[in-house]
């Protein structure tokens, strides 16, 4: 782990000028429910990718390839916006 900075080294107003710094904190540990993505059902409409408040839906070449559980907090928005007829994402208890 990086050495903790003193207050004199911190940016004015707690601005983080390196947005990739958030990658250091793996916030997926907060999750109580996990989205389970079904590759066979997915029609790649990308609704989940658009609506994910983080960036936890992994997309490659315009297609969903999975969920990044290091950062997914299990809010369930992806499952909610997945078209009713498709239901490629379902929420399940984390400790299953």
């Amino acid at each position: 782990m990086a050495k903790l900075k003193s207050w004199k080294e911190l940016p004015c107003g707690a601005i983080i000028d390196d947005p990739t710094a958030v990658l250091e904190n793996k916030t997926g540990a907060w999750r109580s429910q996990r989205p389970c993505w079904n590759a066979e059902k997915c029609i790649h409409c990308l609704n989940c990718w658009i609506f994910c408040p983080d960036a936890a839906v992994i997309v490659k070449d315009g297609k969903v390839v999975g969920i990044n559980y290091d950062y997914c907090k299990g809010c369930g928005i992806c499952a909610e916006v997945c078209p009713t007829k498709v239901q490629a994402i379902t929420m399940e208890e984390e400790r299953k």
Binding site: I15, I16, D17
Partner: peptide, 11 residues
């Protein structure tokens, strides 16, 4: 930039 981050006991 990131504005208004969450900080913990360490920062």
């Amino acid at each position: 930039i990131l504005v208004g981050p969450a900080t913990m006991q360490d920062y």
